[in-house]
């Protein structure tokens, strides 16, 4: 179920990334980043109902049934970094809109001309 959801997120993210509109680009960046995080979670192996905590009361820690904390740590880092990038993209696009007065990525060609 989550795999399908992730695949769907990837597809949507990519589709939106390839759009001309700024808003869709932003949405694409966000979705694509989240899809990657979900992918990390799945690839690391999902374990249901066993959070990666060691409870104080339990004497022995059941390591086998516990969820692997490492992918979660990865995702946490990736989310933070992704957040930074997303914020940057949003501000950047706002500035582009202010200077170029356009909402179409195809019109941003002033640096590509010979």
């Amino acid at each position: 179920m989550i795999s399908i959801l992730t695949g769907f997120l990837f597809a949507t993210g990519l589709y939106l990334l390839l759009h001309k509109s700024f808003m869709k680009l932003i949405a694409g960046v966000i979705l694509f980043g989240n899809a990657c995080n979900m992918f990390l979670l799945i690839a690391g192996g999902l374990t249901r109902n066993h959070p990666a905590f060691v409870s104080k009361s339990a004497d022995a820690v059941a390591v086998d049934s516990m969820a692997d904390p490492v992918p979660q740590a990865f995702i946490l880092t990736a989310i933070v970094i992704g957040l930074g990038v997303q914020a940057f993209v949003i501000v950047l696009l706002k500035r582009i809109y202010q200077t170029s007065r356009t909402n179409n990525l195809d019109e941003l060609t002033s640096t590509d001309r010979v």
Partner: peptide, 24 residues
């Protein structure tokens, strides 16, 4: 800004791919 947005988006995708590879 116009050059920058291309740079940012493509590098974002590149980093995502790196992340995917790490996941795998």
């Amino acid at each position: 800004l116009q050059g920058g947005i291309k740079y940012v988006v493509i590098n974002f995708v590149a980093s995502s791919f790196l992340l995917l590879a790490i996941g795998i």
